[in-house]
Amino acid sequence: MIPDEFRLTESGRETLFNLLSKGALGCLLLYALFPIYWMILSSFRTRAEITAAEPSVLPFTLDEAADAIQDPSVLLTLLEYENYLTMWDRFPVFDYFVNSLIIASVTTVFALAVGCLGGYAFSRYRFPGKIGVGGALLGTQMIPGILILLPMFLLFVWIQETLAIPLIDTYHGIIFVYTTFTVPVAIWMLRGFFDSIPNAIEEAARVDGCSRFQALVRVVLPMAAPGIAATGMFVFLTAFNEVLFASVLARGDVTPFAIGIQSFETQTTAYWGEMMAASTVATAPILILFILFQKPIVEGLTEGSVKQ
């Protein structure tokens, strides 16, 4: 038994709970953000600093920090932004980035186009085999990519040889692969958003003079916009981040950033600082995109699951 004087009051218990939960959240946040911090920090470091036996966790030494407080312009001299200048010349970073943007954007457009129509059909229509097809779509997500990689490669080779359609190391080849992976997820995500749109609104549009397709385009899709933005962001990031298939099927002129970045690590040396600088630059547009679309995406992520 705990003596009464050591018992926490109701409000004391609440405070303790608050502290503990916030502490736990803080740890998680640290865990998630530290690699990004390390990436940015390393991008501003020389190779010597990066490869030091005991690299400093802080950007500056205490003395440097003291100087910077005296005179903020010192900060500029402390930043080692050399990496950001040299990385462009060392490897075609810009080309890699553009490749990634093309591949991810086109994949997003295709996956959304198919996903919207498919998701709408699953949400609104009853058709034979609906449960089976829906399950099969979901089932494709259970198969690890590595199992499909070799068959996919062989299929590409076969198509290339028999039909003379080049697929390996082409934009359309890798876009096709990513679209097939993301369409099932897009259909399932969008189906949830369409489910949350009352049928009556669409019926109102049809009474107002729309065909079913017009009602979809003019009323249902605008209403599902947050969901479409969320789904689109998911597809875009999946395609942007993908490494496994790109490493086999998208080399040469179409090498995306995720693969290209590996070239900073050569047989003789690793350009860590430039690699980190390139990564930081590549992250920025995505981050900006996320911040711009944050509101609709968060709305979208919650809306799909909540029935009106």
Binding site: P198, A200, I201, A205, V219, P222, M223
Partner: peptide
């Protein structure tokens, strides 16, 4: 019944 106005 639920008016079915176009929210956008």
């Amino acid at each position: 019944q639920n008016y079915a106005l176009y929210p956008h």
